[in-house]
């Protein structure tokens, strides 16, 4: 089912939308590619350029993703810093996170960030698998 990005369902922030994915990565091309993949599968995608941007978006109206695809190496606020902030916020702490990183030690790093990760370069299947596990 194809739903073009645009009208987002109105949310009250209490329950995640089973169609919304937040993609956090400082690389524009990666944001674009991941968006393409997800929207092709019918998801709605919100992107953020770094950790701070992601928090702003999460705290904004109507953004309650069913999963966050999180890059680690970002300026301003890194993935690790974002995760800590997110976990300390009760409203956000339950949102699952999948680490998407090119870091050589991603497994180790992910273990303290929820434990789920996909190593770059990712395959479409890996992305869709990860999202489907948390979203409808």
């Amino acid at each position: 089912m194809l739903i073009s990005g645009g009208n987002l369902p109105s949310m009250d922030g209490s329950s995640p939308c089973d169609h919304l994915v937040l993609v956090v990565d400082d690389d524009a091309d990666i944001r674009e590619s991941l968006s393409d993949v997800l929207t092709d599968e019918g998801y709605q995608v919100v992107t953020a350029v770094d950790g701070r941007d992601a928090l702003v978006k999460l705290r904004g109206p109507g953004v309650a993703p069913c999963v966050i695809l999180l890059d680690l190496m970002m300026p301003v606020m890194s993935g690790v810093e974002f995760y800590a902030e997110k976990q300390s916020d009760p409203k956000l702490s339950s949102i699952p996170v999948v680490i998407v990183s090119a870091d050589g030690n991603v497994r180790l790093k992910a273990s303290s960030l929820g434990g789920e990760y996909i190593a770059k370069p990712v395959r479409i299947e890996q992305v869709l698998d990860a999202v489907q596990r948390h979203c409808a």
Partner: peptide
């Protein structure tokens, strides 16, 4: 990083 986009 570029490989990721490329691959996708």
């Amino acid at each position: 990083t570029p490989l990721t986009s490329l691959q996708l």
